[in-house]
C-alpha cells in the first residue's frame, strides 16, 4: 500500500490504461502499434489484479499470482504475433494494416 493514495486513484489509472489500449487497437494503422495497444489492455488488467489484491483482499495472494501469469502469457502472445508479422513483412514489405488486408466481405 502506498501512503496517501487510495484505491480509487490506482483503479482510475488502470482503467485509463485499458481504454487507451482499446482506443489504440481500433484507430492505429500499424500492426506493431496495434500490438502495443493490446499490451496496454493486458497491463491494465494486471495492474487491476495487483491493486485489488493489495487494497481489498490482502490475506490471500490470488491476484498477485494471477498478474504474474498474465505477464508470462502476454510475452508468449507478443512473441507469436511478432513472428507472424515478420513473416508477413517478408512477403509484402509493409506492416500497415491497410496493405495487409486483402480479404473483405
Amino acid at each position: 500500500m502506498i501512503e496517501g493514495i487510495s484505491i480509487y486513484e490506482l483503479l482510475t489509472v488502470s482503467t485509463i490504461l485499458f481504454f487507451i489500449g482499446v482506443y489504440g487497437f481500433i484507430t492505429r494503422k500499424n500492426l506493431i502499434s496495434v500490438l502495443i495497444s493490446v499490451e496496454l489492455i493486458l497491463n491494465g488488467a494486471a495492474v487491476n489484479f495487483v491493486v485489488i489484491n493489495k487494497y481489498l483482499y490482502p490475506e490471500v495472494l490470488q491476484g498477485m499470482i494471477f498478474s504474474i501469469f498474465i505477464i508470462a502469457v502476454a510475452a508468449a502472445e507478443t512473441a507469436l504475433a511478432i513472428s507472424i508479422i515478420i513473416n508477413l513483412y517478408r512477403k509484402i514489405s509493409s506492416v500497415e494494416v491497410k496493405e495487409v488486408e486483402t480479404m473483405k466481405n
Binding site: 489500449g21 489492455i41 493486458l42 491494465g44 489484479f49 494471477f66
Partner: peptide, 12 residues
Amino acid sequence: GITLFGISLMYA
C-alpha cells in the same frame, strides 16, 4: 484482454 479486465472486476 477484455475478458481479463472483466475477471479482475469480478475478483474485486
